[in-house]
Design a protein around this nucleic acid. Structure first.
Length: 471
RNA sequence: GCUCCCAUCGUCUAGAGGCCCAGGACACAGCCCUCUCAAGGCUGGUACGAGGGUUCGAAUCCCUCUGGGAGCGCCA
């Protein structure tokens, strides 16, 4: 039997880390077993579903490369099918009309809560024969009164629920719209889903769904309920921390495979391995090593993984992403140094593409000013003679490349009887505006011969005129 | 309140009775490398929630407790 998994988000909020992790596991499992991954939009809540939210889901999945083999399917497009099943169940006595008003339901609920009982529908309309005038009924599924349902879960093991705990849930609202638990069942059946992989907040819904599946005459699929993902502080994911759209991660400069790698390690493991390429994840993923406990997001670790992927990715691809980041910063890169050289020089000193771009402005523009602390230490009168010598030596260089620059600077330092740092730091501040950059030879090589000399001149003049604001 | 789930370093996790006085990773501290910052290497500290069992032997199995979480909607 071919594996068929599905990711079924509802377009009522944003697609965040938690949803993405679920999507990832579904996708990985399907890929791993050469099956199909299906995307289904659960938009039966017409009040809260928005086209914008659908678009975010689609864009997010697309960016991450979690492409569905089938779909997206929209539940709102399947209403005729749901009605067909409901009609059939009504005919077979598996479902019935309920004329209780919201007020009555509310009263029932309060009474049960007051009696310290679990609030649930008592089934009072089960045997009702006649409609109540003026009330449009809902349709309820007739849940078994006795026995128990066993959810055979791939991550939790067998979980047993007594049917006595379950009540008759509404499957069609009074406005004619079908409800979630019911649609899921019909869809998973129609779409021949073999493995339902979802958040464990759905574990409690599962016995009801199994009962409905059986009413349809079929046996349930394999279930795997994933633990929740929590915010950095260990509490539920909220807007305050972590519950931001996945697309935020793109803007902040994370590579999709880095985010996916991080998410894969949240709840899944393969021994001690931390870094996985997409191909490795597909090859190694399995449900047996999915953890049962909830896990908290750790931004530091995500950043570290991000950098690991930045260092491993093809420079050409990283360049493309970097160009976008420069665009965001308003830095014109056309006509400047090749981006690949910058990637190679900067990738081990940036956690994200955004950070890389921010730290690389000086490759394209002269510093607008000098870092205060750095200037006070290195751009001072005493440093001028050596800086002037450096300028002369660099000006005389016939070939402008890192090894040649390096040799020149080394020679200068040796002749002056100082360490390379004495030469490099003033130069670095003059040319980049700060005290941090890739190795000075590489930095100068990328900036270019002319620009380097011009910037040294500016710095010398700046020192000569007593410093002051600006460069 | 009822039902269900969960429980190893601060965090992510390895661990499927002896290989564990518990391993890896992030973070943190120190050292090395070094023109700065990184990257990399080395070293260090910190964890099996508590109590009972079972067993020659338990982080691993069972029970109770405690602590977290989820569900109990004409939301998904």
């Amino acid at each position: 039997m071919t594996v068929r998994t599905r990711f079924a988000p509802s377009p009522t909020g944003l697609l965040h880390i938690g949803g993405v992790r679920t999507a990832l596991f579904c996708w990985l499992y399907a890929r791993r077993h050469h099956g199909s991954f299906i995307l289904r939009i659960e938009d039966t809540d017409r009040e809260r579903s928005t086209p914008a939210a659908v678009q975010v889901i689609l864009d997010g999945m697309d960016w991450l490369g979690l492409h569905p083999d089938e779909g997206p399917f929209y539940q709102t497009a399947r209403y005729p099918r749901y009605r067909e099943v409901i009609r059939q169940w009504l005919d077979e006595g598996k479902a019935y009309h309920c004329y209780c008003t919201k007020d009555e339901l509310e009263a029932m609920r309060n009474a049960q809560l007051a009696a310290k009982a679990k609030p649930r529908y008592d089934g009072r309309c089960r045997e009702r024969r006649d409609p109540r005038p003026g009330i449009t009924p809902v349709v309820r599924f007739r849940s078994p009164d006795e026995g128990e349902v066993v959810v055979e879960d791939r991550v939790h093991g067998d979980v047993v629920f007594r049917n006595a705990e379950l009540d008759d849930l509404i499957i069609e609202r009074s406005d004619g719209n079908p409800t979630y638990n019911f649609c899921v069942v019909v869809d998973d059946y129609d779409m021949r889903i073999t493995h339902v992989i979802r958040g464990d907040d759905h574990l409690n819904n599962t016995p009801r769904q199994i009962n409905m599946l059986r009413a349809l005459g079929v046996e349930p699929p394999v279930y795997a309920h994933l633990p929740m993902i929590l915010g950095p502080d260990g509490t539920k994911l909220s807007k305050r921390h972590g519950a931001v759209s996945v697309l935020h991660y793109r803007e902040q400069g994370y590579l999709p495979e880095a985010l996916l790698n991080y998410l894969a390690r949240l709840g899944w493991s393969h021994g001690d391995q931390e870094i996985f390429s997409l191909a490795e994840m597909v090859e190694l993923f399995d449900l047996d090593h999915v953890n049962k406990a909830a896990s908290a997001i750790n931004p530091d670790k995500l950043a570290w993984i991000s950098q690991q992927h930045l260092m491993r990715a093809q420079p050409a691809r990283v360049s493309t992403e970097l160009a976008w980041q420069f665009g965001q910063l308003g830095v014109e890169v056309v006509g400047g140094p090749p981006l690949e050289a910058i990637v190679l020089a900067q990738r081990e000193r940036a956690k994200t593409l955004q950070e890389m771009a921010q730290n690389s402005r000086y490759f394209f523009c002269s510093p607008e000013g000098y870092d205060d602390k750095a200037a006070r230490k290195h751009l001072v009168a005493e440093a001028l003679p050596l800086l002037a010598q450096t300028r002369a030596a660099l000006a005389a260089l016939p070939d402008w490349n890192a090894p040649a620059i390096h040799a020149a600077l080394e020679g200068l330092a040796a002749a002056a009887g100082v360490g390379l740092g004495k030469v490099a730091q003033p130069l670095r501040v003059a040319v980049t505006g700060g005290s941090v950059s890739p190795p000075i030879d590489q930095t100068l090589a990328i900036i270019g011969h002319e620009a380097t000399l011009a910037r040294i001149d500016r710095a010398v003049a700046w020192v000569a005129t007593g410093g002051g604001p600006g460069a």
